[in-house]
């Protein structure tokens, strides 16, 4: 890149754009964080917590026999099977597909378009607000679930494992993977919401693809978000008899890969929204 280009990029009104993005994020978060607007997302995040809270009062004998190793595997299974494949996935479907399509249905998108904000800035602001919303809800849920699962083993065990052992690292990994899941799925569903009037068909296809990932051959596994997310999980889980095994993606590929996908999707979404025309009557 020549110094002329760098000079041009530096001269762009970055401060104004950042302030506009902040404004959009705050406004969207205020709208979306209410229980009334996102009841199903809260339900998805709170359901496992309710179960784990119940378990505090009714611990099973098996987990006492299995010890910390057994609980590690149990949390890994819950995280992969429930949080990653279902809760975060459907949470992202609900939040990100509604970012633009919801405004069209509520006949409020033109208010955004009438403000002196570039449409690309609007995409970025709305996307970050969606990621933050999902991460606050599901990241918080994962962290609380982690402690709730280990608590029945006694506080001493929790202290030994979480604060003096590898537990805190596991917790950070799980919360980090949740964040990456919000970023990856969020980008995909934001794009779906912009391209399709009824995004249920493409969403069903993606759901099916992500769901059967364990059955896919290794080269096809790599064309999915769940493969990279599962590669980053700290505790491996026993694979089923029909699972086709594949080498997990290394950290240096998984994280930049997901971030790269997000960047590409945001660029496409930015280009798409520049040509977007609102016609509420057609909805």
């Amino acid at each position: 890149m020549s110094s002329g280009h760098v000079q041009k990029i530096k001269q762009l009104p970055w401060v104004l754009w950042i302030r506009q993005v902040q404004g959009i994020i705050l406004f969207e978060l205020r709208r979306s964080l209410t229980l009334r607007r996102s009841p199903f997302v809260y339900l998805l995040a709170l359901a496992p917590l309710a179960l784990l809270s119940l378990r505090l009062f009714f611990p099973t004998e098996q987990e006492i026999l299995d010890g910390i190793g057994g609980i590690n595997v149990m949390f890994a299974i819950i995280f992969r099977a429930f949080y990653l494949r279902l809760a975060v996935f459907f949470g992202c479907v609900g939040v990100f597909m509604r970012l633009f399509r919801g405004d069209v249905l509520e006949k409020t998108l033109h208010y955004y378009f009438l403000t002196s904000v570039r449409r690309e800035i609007l995409v970025v602001g709305k996307y970050i607000s969606g990621v933050l919303l999902n991460f606050i809800i599901f990241g918080g849920s994962v962290a609380v679930a982690f402690f709730l699962l280990y608590l029945p083993s006694g506080w001493v065990t929790v202290e030994e494992f979480v604060f003096k052992g590898p537990g805190m690292g596991h917790l950070f990994s799980y919360v980090g993977v949740t964040f990456l899941a919000c970023i990856g799925y969020g980008a995909v569903f934001l794009l779906m919401g912009l391209f399709f009037r009824n995004p249920i068909v493409p969403a069903s296809v993606i759901l099916g693809w992500e769901y059967i990932n364990f059955l896919l051959p290794p080269y096809l596994k790599k064309i999915s978000v769940i493969y990279y997310l599962e590669s980053l999980c700290p505790v491996p889980i026993p694979s089923g008899p029909v699972t086709i095994l594949a080498e997990p993606a290394p950290f240096w590929l998984a994280v930049p890969g997901l971030l790269g996908l997000t960047l590409v999707v945001l660029v496409i979404a930015g280009l798409k929204i520049r040509q977007m025309e609102i016609s509420y009557g057609e909805e």
Binding site: F40, L44, A47, P48, L51, A81, F82, R85, L86, A87, F90, V93, G94, M97, R98, R101, G102, L105, N198, P199, I200, A203, S204, L207, Y211
Partner: peptide, 20 residues
Amino acid sequence: RWKAIAGALMFGVFLVGAGF
């Protein structure tokens, strides 16, 4: 109220219910 979300919810009731 939104058809797409209602469709996703139909899937959700079955899949999330199974996972839960």
